Amino acid sequence: MNVIIPSWNAATTLPATLATLAEAPCRIIVADAASPDGTADIAMRLGAEVVQAPRGRGAQLAAGAAASTAEWLLFLHADTRLEPGWSQAAQAFMAGPPGAAHFTFALDDPSPPARRLERAVAWRCRNFSLPYGDQGLLIHRGLYQAMGGFRPMPLMEDVDLIRRLRPLRPVALAPRAITSANKWHKHGFMLRSAKNLSILSLYFAGVPPRWLARIY
């Protein structure tokens, strides 16, 4: 398994993310966009390989995938930590036929609004098969390539790929992908969630991602 992590100024969050990956033997590829905060140096010091890519999560994920060699790929955000037990769940899934899976969304925040958001995301995944990139994506290389991979989009690259995968209904794995709540702290849970929903609705309505990136 190769783990691919796009990064931009992730010096404060990447070490914890990489630490959780030590549970399993895997090659880690950090696709950095020339972060000025030393992210690339930190990644290499902690044992990851670094490839440089144009800034934009879609382009960075695609660059990381192009540098990978494993049969299975795990795409993970730089501010997302996988909880203990993730590797056993991943290995059990990879023992089956080629497919795609994601982890359970969680925030590193103990507040009731965080729990409500987690329940809302679980409902969205259960009813619409629509996980986001902050839940991780474990996918067989052949399926990833057959679906066309990540496109070089400035935003919504995760939704774009999941829409192509939806007929297969990516499997939900029980271990949590614990994501930093900083974005929600900055704007407030209600405002941030409403903004995310608005952007998703505009995307499904056909608004180009390059326009959506300006208001994200």
Rank of each mutant, 00 (worst) to 15 (best):
98 P>N: 06
61 L>H: 07
155 L>E: 03
53 A>E: 04
143 L>Y: 11
215 I>G: 00
165 L>A: 11
22 A>E: 06
134 D>N: 11
113 P>G: 00
208 P>I: 02
39 T>L: 11
207 V>G: 01
113 P>C: 15
211 W>I: 10
172 A>D: 00
108 D>W: 08
49 E>Y: 13
152 P>V: 14
117 L>H: 13
172 A>Y: 00
60 Q>F: 01
86 W>S: 00
24 A>I: 02
65 A>D: 01
7 S>T: 15
163 R>Q: 08
82 L>N: 03
29 I>Q: 05
80 T>L: 05
142 G>R: 15
189 F>T: 08
85 G>P: 02
40 A>D: 00
122 A>P: 03
124 R>D: 15
185 H>C: 08
154 P>K: 02
98 P>A: 09
212 L>Y: 02
122 A>C: 15
10 A>W: 04
43 A>I: 06
168 L>Q: 14
15 P>S: 10
37 D>F: 11
174 A>T: 12
98 P>R: 01
127 N>L: 15
199 I>P: 00
211 W>R: 12
43 A>M: 12
98 P>G: 04
69 T>D: 09
157 E>R: 00
30 V>C: 08
147 M>T: 13
45 R>A: 04
69 T>L: 10
8 W>Q: 02
6 P>I: 07
103 F>P: 14
86 W>F: 03
111 S>I: 06
81 R>H: 03
125 C>I: 14
2 N>A: 06
138 L>Y: 06
103 F>E: 10
83 E>W: 01
160 D>E: 05
154 P>H: 08
144 Y>E: 11
204 F>S: 07
95 A>C: 02
181 A>K: 01
126 R>M: 14
32 D>W: 14
73 L>S: 06
91 Q>A: 14
14 L>Q: 06
1 M>T: 13
10 A>T: 09
91 Q>T: 11
186 K>W: 06
54 P>F: 14
114 A>I: 15
3 V>Y: 05
106 A>T: 05
146 A>E: 04
106 A>F: 01
116 R>K: 15
155 L>I: 09
111 S>C: 08
96 G>S: 13
75 F>G: 10
11 A>F: 13
85 G>F: 02
131 P>M: 12
153 M>K: 05
175 P>N: 01
179 T>W: 04
66 A>H: 12
154 P>A: 11
116 R>P: 00
71 E>G: 14
2 N>R: 02
180 S>D: 10
203 Y>T: 01
43 A>D: 10
53 A>K: 00
193 S>V: 05
130 L>K: 15
81 R>S: 09
151 R>Q: 14
213 A>G: 05
205 A>G: 09
154 P>F: 01
103 F>W: 08
145 Q>R: 12
83 E>N: 00
123 W>N: 06
34 A>R: 10
78 A>C: 15
26 C>A: 04
100 A>H: 01
108 D>L: 00
145 Q>M: 14
194 A>R: 14
124 R>W: 06
174 A>V: 12
78 A>L: 13
114 A>D: 11
176 R>A: 07
46 L>C: 04
166 R>I: 04
198 S>G: 15
139 I>N: 04
200 L>Y: 07
213 A>R: 12
76 L>M: 15
3 V>Q: 03
190 M>N: 03
70 A>C: 07
175 P>G: 00
156 M>R: 02
136 G>P: 04
59 A>V: 00
108 D>T: 07
192 R>G: 05
153 M>I: 01
